[in-house]
Amino acid sequence: MNKNEFLSELNRHLQKLPKSEQEAAIEDYEEHFEHGVFEGRSEADIATSLGNPRKIARELVTEYHLEHAEQHNSYYSITRAVFAFLGLGFLNLVFVLAPFIAIVAVIIASYAVSFVFVISPLSVFVALFGDDSWQSILLLLFATLGLLGVGLILGTVTTKFSKIFFQWFTRYLKSNQRIIRGERK
């Protein structure tokens, strides 16, 4: 088999591929023949060591289809990603967003309460300028100092809780991402 026979046999079995693919493949083998001939080998010798052109063609076709299948797969996964996103969007809206807003509201409220408690001793100064008796001012002082303590504790607890809550929530969002990307972990 000489160069032309080899190339036309190869080409004959590549008909199923797009023109550009065929040409690119043929070019590779043309170049190979040219190099071989340049080194002083005979065309028949080069063709023999290249192997059966039909088998080579089959390999090229298989590679092409494999690659194509992967591309199809990616269209499929885009569709899947969109549906996953919509589905998760609905789920998130109904089952996650509402509780999320509620919990954030609770966190804000308890911060507000603890802030008010913490600054409550300041009311003693206001009372000083009024005409309250010193007993009632003293009572106010102790009561508000108590509130200050409660406020500090409440603030600390809220901070701890919101940290845990936001960590958990980030993890939940990340798992959403993974589902949308199609990873299954």
């Binding site: 493949a25 080579i56 090229l60």
Partner: peptide
């Protein structure tokens, strides 16, 4: 090897 298999 069948040298032709390198190109694919």
């Amino acid at each position: 090897i069948a040298e032709g298999t390198i190109y694919p």
